[in-house]
Design a protein around this nucleic acid. Structure first.
Lengths: 194, 194
DNA sequence: GGACTCATGTAAGCTGTTACATGATTTC
DNA sequence: GAAATCATGTAACAGCTTACATGAGTCC
């Protein structure tokens, strides 16, 4: 689902500035969808061109001028029909799983470090979701997404605790890998062939 | 993690053609990373330009000619150092969660339909992972990723079963939404402004 | 004085998807 | 004869991220 649609959805919850929407993304969508300013502002622009939102400028005394966006009836109807037409699906992008998939190629200490990182991340996200669920102004749908997120994270942490030892045990006797073979240039720029 | 890196990783498991790598993605990476031909072939090309892989052509009698790729020592070292330098992280893109986040805007029957879709998807993916774990040629790392995937899916299915009724119960008394307000033109082409 | 938050926006570029183009062999 | 599988690749485009550019107010 595109950021444009998500912005429209955010505005269906109440008028907001681009900045507000970014915060909503961080506070509520964070565990299942990301978005940056570089996509939010252009999205709002397009939505306005299409007549799905309008805005008024609020002159600021204590803050900079802000463009407060508002969904039009057409925009609301459009969002609803898009929602209804969106199939329920999901996609994971997990570097963690890739790392574990290739665990046999990693030295034990690095593997341990990655496992520790995973636990930290999962714990932090769980804490975050727990702090979210203490806020009380949620619809039942939002509570559902938070609850689902928490259950999934608990399952991940449990799995990690229960299987980490087994993984490390069957990992021990690796041959040393050629660590220092120079290859740092791959990550960004690289070649400029046609 | 980019497809290029993943291709390099795939080749660290053994020589393969682009087509083989695509199948590996479908069979093993599927639940945590996707990739299409349109990204695999160009990746292999770049890897070869960088000297990380080489290939030989296998003339086909029973199949078309195939380019069998092979990791060079440099490529292997590069992959290992990239792996070690990759922080363990993950990102979810879930239309399902978006749908539920806005559940209060959906008519009950559509919501029920989406919940049913979610269950179907989760069940299918669980079946798929269960079929994977019956294969016996896995490293312990691969088993770990499959096991983690299964645990997460079971947690999702459990949560769905335990909370679906609550969600639907608190959903009932919605006002009718303006369904038929014409807005189908938003999905693809749209305007051609400068 | 410095750092942080609020606030808006643009431009370059990376990465990947979709659709197209081609064609042999095998299976039904 | 049709459909599926094997096999390789390109081109157009979509979509998003990163970094840049700017500036006021507030908190320490």
């Amino acid at each position: 689902m595109r950021v444009k649609t998500l912005c429209l959805g955010a505005l269906c919850l109440g008028d907001a500035t681009g900045y507000d929407i970014k915060k909503l993304f961080e506070n509520a969508f964070n565990h299942f969808h990301g978005a940056s300013f570089g996509s939010i502002y252009p999205s709002l622009k397009k939505l306005e061109e299409q007549g799905h939102v309008s805005h008024r400028v609020e002159a600021g005394e204590k803050h900079p001028d802000r463009k407060l966006f508002h969904v039009t009836d057409e925009g609301r109807a459009c969002f609803l029909s898009e929602l209804a037409g969106t199939p329920a699906s999901e996609q994971l992008r997990s570097e963690s799983m890739v790392l574990l998939f290739f665990a046999h190629l990693l030295p034990t200490e690095i593997l341990q470090q990655k496992l520790a990182e995973m636990e930290t991340h999962y714990s932090e996200e769980l804490n975050y979701l727990e702090s979210l669920s203490e806020c009380s102004n949620h619809t039942s749908g939002i509570d559902f997404t938070i609850g689902m997120g928490k259950s999934v994270l608990r399952a991940k942490l449990d799995y990690l605790h229960n299987h980490r030892k087994t993984l490390l045990a069957s990992h021990r006797d690796l041959p040393d890998s050629p660590w220092n073979a120079g290859c740092e240039q791959n990550n960004q720029q690289a070649e400029s062939s046609s």
